[in-house]
Amino acid sequence: MAIQITHVRLAANGTGHDSITRYKWRNESTGKTGDSDKPTMVTWVDTAGNSAYVSNGLSRVAVGVYRPQNGSPYLKTNANGVWTDNLLALPRF
């Protein structure tokens, strides 16, 4: 199953990917929308058969689980093997 992440919510005074606390998404096959917290989304994206992406209408960028050396895993976009900032460019909710 694939979902498009459409919006993010950051913790107060947060600016980085690790500060994202919630993700708003849309299931591409059913049209269902919802929002989920960071631990739930990390687990979901990590599950075989699930995928997430962001889109600007012209192209898609895959979302993966980023595991820093120190700290908890979080979501980040990955374009052609390079971690990118596409999630931080999404609208806030």
Rank of each mutant, 00 (worst) to 15 (best):
N56R: 01
G71W: 08
N13D: 12
G71N: 08
T43I: 12
L88E: 10
T30R: 10
N13I: 05
N70F: 13
R67L: 03
I20C: 01
P73D: 08
T6K: 08
G81K: 00
W44L: 14
L87I: 05
R9F: 01
E28K: 13
T21H: 00
D18K: 02
R26H: 09
S19A: 12
I20L: 02
R67C: 05
A62I: 13
E28A: 12
K32C: 06
N78Y: 04
S72C: 05
D46I: 09
N27Q: 15
S72I: 03
W25S: 07
M41L: 13
A89Q: 07
S51K: 09
K76G: 00
W25M: 07
G49W: 13
N56T: 06
M41G: 13
S29L: 11
S59E: 07
S36T: 15
Y74N: 01
Q4D: 07
L90G: 09
T77I: 03
T84K: 02
G34C: 14
R26M: 13
A12T: 05
V61H: 11
D46K: 15
A48M: 05
D18G: 09
S51Q: 11
T43G: 13
A48F: 07
R67F: 02
V42L: 10
L87S: 03
S55E: 13
A52K: 15
A11M: 02
L87F: 06
H7A: 06
T47W: 09
V8Y: 04
A52M: 15
V45G: 15
L75R: 00
V8G: 04
G14E: 02
G31I: 11
S36M: 14
V63S: 08
D46P: 12
Y53H: 15
M41F: 09
T30D: 13
S72D: 12
F93M: 09
Y66H: 08
K76I: 01
I3H: 10
